[in-house]
Amino acid sequence: MFGGVTTVVTGVDVAKRWGSTQALNGASFSVGEGVTGLLGANGAGKTTLLGLILGLHRPDVGTLDVLGHDPWLAGSQVRAKLGYAPEHDALPPDVAAHDVVRHLAELHGLPRREATSRASDALWEVGLGEERFRPVGTMSTGQRQRVKLAQAIVHDPELVLLDEPTDGLDPTQREAMLGLIHHVGADLGMHVVLSSHLLEEVERVSNAVVILEAGRVVAGGGMAELSKADPELVVDLDRDDSDQDPASRLAATLAELGAAATASSPTRVVAVLEGPGIYDVVRDALADGGYSVRRLQRRTASLEEIYLASSGRGAAL
């Protein structure tokens, strides 16, 4: 189980080496329902992990379970239930979008008549209904990414693997694609693994995340669960001529009262929320000290902070 819901993919100590490159190095993780972000820098092992989930490679070490099967041993059975959109621009340019999508539907076992009907439905769903008979090569990058999404969902898979689906898109197109991915995961009843090196887009649409760093899983779990780890209370104060550094004074007071708090600036105090009593402690300290309070807010960690903390990185991806 994964945060109280069904587990779709489970990996235990998965390792995979390509020549001298250790692509995955003992990765253990779970992917649950909804949209799960697979986050990591380029070369972190994301695409290799997708290949293992698809049963295209055999792990050197470790076990992998996808929808109740070992993908290496039951590859065809597993892949019939998966949809996959690759990172690169792989679609044949001289073939109509509808033909490409229908062809993929047939490959996944749908009879020809059903595949034809589903191809139209899928292309309408991704916003290409009117454009579906245009050759893929005449479409914009954003439209081609939508065709890739359509071919991945046309056979109504249980799990959709999307490898960098916003690659090459401008901000407007990216926004629309993220909306579609959220729609697929939330409304169409498919589970989605969104592989990306962009923190912001994973944070936008995912309800869980697996963070890869040099082939290892450095953090994973539901977004709500991860962001709840060590939540903080941020207190912004006003300063005046008589008190230029109210934050240091408040932090010292809170420390005397047994609360873990630091002054991050002359006007900001960040206190670690260690139980419900901390609110009373902070309130009393503020009242007793006569502080002028500008803002008091409970803050949860962003995905970027989680990533930086777990990977030990000092810079963004």
Binding site: S76, Y84, P92, L107, H108, Q151
Partner: peptide, 13 residues
């Protein structure tokens, strides 16, 4: 075009 990757992500091996 690397569409082979898409084919091998289907029930085909």
């Amino acid at each position: 075009s690397r569409f082979l990757g898409v084919y091998l992500a289907s029930p085909l091996n």
